[in-house]
Nucleic acid binder design. Structure first.
Lengths: 305, 305
DNA sequence: TCGACTCTATCGAAACATTCGATCATGCCC
DNA sequence: GGGCATGATCGAATGTTTCGATAGAGTCGA
């Protein structure tokens, strides 16, 4: 049963002959006997049922068919080379895929720049990005789905995780202008907040043990998706806090109003939510992952948000 | 010297295993012994220095690396298949390249539609198009560079050529508005033309034997390029005839004026230049070329220009 | 025109790679 | 537990590719 398909090796020989200009030169460049080159080309021609070289002259000349097939042969060879390079990178320790999970709170613009640079340097580790919130995000790191997480500090407490502080983000209490709280321009007291519906981001996972942070109202709606919370706030369904970077535009064009909260000690401070990077100690990230972490923390040091 | 590069056959086996879900099933689908499949995968893994399947479970599961490399393997296989298909088409008689030469007079819009259809049906015969004029165009067919010519009838007389009438094109005498002849609105006599410079398309080849057609003026400039002639007419350097389809727009927006010529018999008829397709009798075009010719002459019958 | 060189095709022998079929240990599923 | 399927491994058989030598033909400069 003779092979019906050319082998990759035959294509290599074909390309070498084209590039070197003669069978003998190709044999030299491939460090093989000239007869092996002749044989390979003969086999290739036989399998393709096409004459590739015209041997009438002293030096073999590509036939028209050979010229037409040459670019395809190069393409196959190039793709095979790319496959080899990719495998080599993986064999050398590159992660075949750089999977990371990002907490929905995380400012994406910080991430995209780092990712762009990293994937330019590590083209064989294409990123795959998950977005989730709080414990659910941390879980993806803990169970090994993602090598790296960009998480809320408080939702990723675990001795299995190596965590490093990245940035704080400011949480801003807001309400829609048509909401009673949003309509008032003056500071509101905690007692003023209490009767209104507060929209609280909830944890889809059980990891945070259902502890609540910054819950003031007696009526709370729990929403597991930050975008949904955002939309509901804009729709005036209640009040709640959102990361500063998410509401900057809404505050500027008036779709949301910032609430100033007064407690016993006076005007309350802006709540800052610490974010960190995290990975499992027993599965340290590969080169691309380490690069990403380094770039992110360098960026955090430069521009602490 | 063990091969450093995977063979195409190994990739096929890899893909078969992925698609079939097990080594044994792959062996069945490839009609080979199961041990051959095991051997091929082992070799492939060895050459790539990457574990592709996790054999811990009952059925082999792609490793992460295997999953990452899979698309590349498919790509190589697909490109190799494309190469085979292309070669098969050539072996079956398809011309590796559909080379044709078109006389500059030929209305391109007629050609493009036919070419689009033909190259959709014959993707393995990509067209290569030359444009030249008169005898120079015919020569490209006669010397075998082009399988097909779309030529002026009078410049392609040769017993070696099989020619078929396609269409006539109308030649329209024109001059720029700032030219003395273009300024006059009334018909001009042949005697009126005589003193003015006439721009005449000349034949770069010697094939037409330097016979002139439709030369009236005593002072003639000979230009070997139709586009240059066109530009010079618009610049007001003289008068001359151009194909109707080339000057329609210029006539409409006034950049050129049509000359009405009066001879002894009254207003002279519009000169019609017959165009034909041509190919060497001893080298009839392949399937793509025949298709193109059929489509062109069908189009000519439908819309005789 | 000769002679030295290089080219490709071809041959048999040797080296190599791949295949097969049989056998084994293991996991699955009823 | 028993029947069945899976993948690894082995030796033998088969096929493919390589090598080196040789022959015939083209090239190029003296």
């Amino acid at each position: 049963m003779p092979a019906l398909t050319p082998s990759y090796d035959q294509l290599q020989v074909f390309l070498a002959v084209v590039d070197e200009g003669s069978f003998s030169a190709a044999a030299r460049s491939l460090k093989r006997a000239q007869s092996a080159v002749t044989y390979a080309i003969q086999k290739l021609e036989e399998q393709l049922d096409v004459r590739l070289f015209d041997r009438a002259a002293y030096r073999p000349a590509l036939t028209e068919a050979g010229r037409a097939l040459l670019p395809r042969a190069r393409l196959v060879a190039d793709e095979m080379q790319a496959l080899r390079n990719h495998a080599e990178a993986i064999a050398a320790g590159a992660e075949p895929e750089l999977r990371l999970v990002v907490d929905a709170m995380f400012p994406m613009d910080r991430l995209v720049e780092s990712l762009r640079l990293v994937s330019a340097r590590f083209p064989h580790s294409p990123p795959r990005i998950y977005v989730d919130s709080m414990g659910a995000a941390a879980e993806l790191v803990l169970n090994g789905v993602c090598a790296i997480g960009l998480l809320l500090e408080f939702s990723s407490v675990s001795e299995h995780l190596q965590r490093d502080k990245l940035i704080d983000i400011a949480m801003i209490p807001v309400a829609a202008p048509n909401h009673p709280l949003g309509a008032a321009d003056s500071p509101v007291s905690i007692e003023d907040l209490r009767p209104h519906v507060q929209l609280v981001l909830s944890d889809r996972s059980g990891l945070s043990g259902d502890r609540d942070y910054g819950v003031f109202s007696t009526r709370t709606w729990r929403i597991a998706d930050l975008g949904a919370k955002h939309a509901m706030l804009k729709a005036g369904l209640g009040w709640g806090s959102l990361p500063a970077h998410l509401v900057a535009e809404d505050l500027a064009n008036g779709r949301l109003r910032r609430l100033t909260i007064r407690d016993e000690a006076g005007l309350s401070e802006v709540v800052r939510l610490p974010l960190c990077s995290a990975f499992r100690r027993d599965r340290p990230p590969g080169p691309a992952g380490r690069h990403l972490l380094a770039h992110l923390s360098a960026g955090a040091a430069r521009k602490p948000a």
